[in-house]
C-alpha cells in the first residue's frame, strides 16, 4: 500500500517536473536586427456577407447591386507596436492592388523588423505626393494599375476604387424595374485629394520573427461605399440620358472617401504558421 502510494506520488511529481522543464518560454522575444515577413489577406464582403461577383446585394437605400468588378488600391503600410513606435514600409514598394476579378487578395510585406505589432495603418488609394511624382517614379506600379483598370485616362491619376456592375431600384424608393449599369471610380483629381488612411487594431498581436510570418486577415465591406455614414443613391446619379449611374467626381468622391474609412476591419491574426489558411 505504502509503496503503491509512493509510486503514484512519484509518478505525479515526475510528470510535473517534466512539464515544468518543457514549458520554458521558447524565445518569444524578438531578436534585435532580425526581420520577417508579414502577409495581409483582404477578404472582400458586403455588409457581413462574402462578396461574390455576379451575386446581388440590397442596401438600405432600396438599391440592389450586382458587382461585376471590385478593385482597390491599398498603400503606405505602417506597422505599429504597443508603445506607439512605427515601422513604415518602404514607400516605393508600398502600393498594392486588391482585385476580386483576378483573385488578387494578398499584400506581402518583406523584411519587417522583428517585433510585436498591435495596429496597422494603411491608405486607400494613392497619396497626392506619390501621384504628383508622376508615372515614372512608380513605373511598375503604374503599369500594374493600368493593367487592373485602376488608372484614369480622361484625367491623370489613379482610380483608388473601381466598383462596377448593374443595379435596380426598389419601386418603394422611386425606382422602376430596369437594370442599369453603374460605375464608381473613386480617386483624386486636381481639385480634391481623396486619399485617406485608416488605423486598425489587431485583435491579437502580430508577431514578426525571423522565419515566422503572421497573417493578418482583414475583412472589407463594399456596402459602405454607397450605404455608409452618408448615403449615396445610384438612381440620383444617373447620366444625362438616364441609362447608367456614374460616380467619378465631385462631392460624391469626398463622401466615399469618408465612408470608406470604415470599409476595413481586421478579423483575426494568425501567427507563426505562414500563409493564409
Amino acid at each position: 500500500m505504502k509503496s503503491r502510494l509512493k509510486n503514484i506520488a512519484g509518478l505525479l511529481a515526475l510528470s510535473l517536473f517534466i512539464n515544468s522543464c518543457s514549458s520554458d518560454d521558447n524565445g518569444s522575444a524578438p531578436a534585435d536586427g532580425t526581420s520577417g515577413d508579414v502577409e495581409l489577406f483582404f477578404d472582400n464582403g458586403v455588409a457581413g456577407d462574402a462578396l461574390m461577383l455576379g451575386n446581388s446585394y440590397t442596401n438600405s437605400n432600396g438599391e440592389t447591386l450586382i458587382f461585376e468588378r471590385f478593385t482597390y488600391i491599398v498603400s503606405n503600410f505602417v506597422l505599429i507596436k504597443e508603445d506607439g513606435s512605427e515601422f513604415t514600409y518602404p514607400k516605393n514598394e508600398s502600393y498594392f492592388i486588391i482585385n476580386e476579378e483576378t483573385g488578387q487578395f494578398t499584400v506581402h510585406l518583406e523584411n519587417v523588423p522583428a517585433g510585436d505589432y498591435k495596429k496597422i495603418k494603411f491608405g486607400i488609394g494613392v497619396d497626392q505626393q506619390r501621384y504628383l511624382q508622376g508615372e515614372t517614379a512608380q513605373q511598375s506600379f503604374w503599369d500594374l494599375a493600368f493593367a487592373n483598370n485602376m488608372t484614369w485616362t480622361w484625367s491623370t491619376g489613379y482610380r483608388f476604387i473601381n466598383c462596377q456592375g448593374t443595379f435596380t431600384v426598389d419601386p418603394a424608393h422611386g425606382g422602376d424595374t430596369t437594370s442599369r449599369g453603374f460605375m464608381i471610380h473613386q480617386g483624386s483629381n486636381t481639385a480634391t485629394d481623396n486619399y485617406r488612411e485608416v488605423v486598425l487594431n489587431l485583435p491579437t498581436t502580430a508577431r514578426v520573427r525571423e522565419g515566422e510570418m503572421p497573417n493578418i486577415h482583414l475583412k472589407s465591406d463594399a456596402n459602405v461605399i454607397l450605404d455608409g455614414d452618408t448615403k449615396i443613391e445610384l438612381h440620383h446619379n444617373l447620366n444625362g440620358a438616364g441609362t447608367a449611374a456614374s460616380i467619378m467626381a465631385g462631392e460624391n468622391l469626398i463622401t466615399i472617401a469618408n465612408n470608406t474609412k470604415k470599409m476595413f476591419t481586421v478579423d483575426h491574426v494568425h501567427n507563426g504558421a505562414g500563409t493564409h489558411h
Binding site: I18, N19, S22, S23, A273, H276, H277
Partner: peptide, 19 residues
C-alpha cells in the same frame, strides 16, 4: 499543429501540445 489555429475551429488537433 499550430497551422490549424488560423482557422475557425482551433480544436481540429490530435493533442493540445501541453501538459
Amino acid at each position: 499543429d499550430s497551422a490549424n489555429n488560423g482557422s475557425i475551429n482551433p480544436s481540429f488537433q490530435l493533442g493540445t501540445g501541453s501538459w
